[in-house]
Simulated assay, not measured.
Amino acid sequence: MYPAEFAYVRPTGLDGVFAAIERYADDVKVVAGGQSLLPMMKLRLATPGVLVDLAGAGELRGQWSTTDGVRVGAMTTYRELQRSPRTLDLLPGLEETLALIADPQVRARGTIGGAVAHGDPTADLPAMLLALEAVVLLASPRGIRRRPLDEFFTGVYSTDLAEDEVVLAIDIPQPPPGTGAAYQKYEQPASHLALCGVAAALTIGGGRVHRARLAMTGVAATPRRLTALEEALTGTQVNAKAFDEIAVTAVHGVEPLDDMHASAAYRLQLLKLATREALQIAASRAGAGWAA
């Protein structure tokens, strides 16, 4: 199927982007890498009258050191991140997650900002960004607004992005020393989208978990933190039995998706498995002294 007829605008710089958004108002859609929006347009699930391309806004591309980690511009592609050794060294688990996103063609065009702004409940990258406590920077003519990523997703393909805002960048703090991270995914074979994905970042010392951050994707209406598990893990002695017992509780309070790709019950079972595996691998990478 072909998309509905639309106009295309590629402004130079953010000011031009804001002007185009204001000019076309209700009939506009902003496009970054286009790896999610364009297929939706071909199926006519999205029918914007005007596409505003962010590719001409150089302010949105790049990576910069911050006082506590890394800032990644919204138009930075997955592939560009994969080729950034310094960023990958600072942020455990990120390299593994990027390698599991879709296929090489999508990774070459898909962008970090697009992955966040699209609000796809099955996207891989948001889970690891949540586990790394990322913060989204949102730009508009009114200025720049910071929003913790775990408060940004509001529903299926729904976020806290205002109509006149674009994602400017993602701030990702460097985890404490002694942190290991992992991303475990069960995917839909044709699309490679997550039926269930769990990201875990564990800081371990003296055989105990000092700090835990976990997040899931593909299971519920939004990617989200598993805060109850984080609290349960803190102070826990590192061993397989403890992780098994905690992983079973991952499903508590989760309202799973139920669709043609997987039933609700199947997704919850995958959540238990992926949580256990992510915890074991993250602990082994934190130097817990045992093999996953």
Rank of each mutant, 00 (worst) to 15 (best):
V135H: 00
L138P: 00
V106G: 10
A212S: 11
Q105G: 14
H118T: 14
L149S: 02
V116C: 05
A242C: 11
A220M: 10
P173K: 12
A115Y: 01
D164A: 15
V166R: 04
E151D: 12
P189G: 10
R109C: 14
Q174N: 08
P104I: 15
T122M: 09
A117D: 01
G143M: 01
A200G: 07
V167R: 01
R147W: 00
R213E: 04
Y186V: 15
G155F: 07
R147S: 13
R225I: 08
A221H: 10
E245R: 11
D103L: 07
Q174S: 15
A201I: 07
P177G: 10
D244M: 13
H192Y: 12
D150Y: 03
E163P: 13
G180F: 10
A190T: 14
Q188M: 11
A221W: 04
L202F: 09
A139M: 01
A221D: 11
Q184R: 15
G110R: 10
P148G: 03
L132A: 05
L137Q: 05
R147M: 15
V166P: 06
L168A: 11
G119K: 04
V248W: 01
P189C: 11
E163V: 15
P177F: 06
G178W: 12
P223N: 07
A131R: 01
T227W: 04
N239H: 13
M216V: 12
A139V: 04
V219Y: 06
I246M: 05
G119T: 05
F153H: 06
V116E: 00
R147K: 06
E133V: 00
A123C: 07
P175K: 12
A181S: 15
D244C: 12
L233I: 10
G235S: 08
G110H: 09
G143C: 02
P126W: 05
A117W: 02
A127D: 01
V209A: 09
T122W: 02
D120V: 08
A127I: 07
D103Y: 14
V248N: 00
R211T: 11
T179N: 13
G235H: 06
L130R: 02
K241S: 14
V156N: 05
I170Q: 01
A232L: 14
Y157M: 14
D171F: 13
R225Y: 07
T222M: 10
E151C: 02
V167K: 03
V219I: 13
K241T: 14
A181N: 07
G119L: 09
R109E: 13
R145E: 03
R147G: 00
A182Q: 12
E245K: 08
P148V: 04
F152E: 03
D171P: 09
T217D: 02
A242H: 08
F243K: 01
P104V: 15
M128R: 09
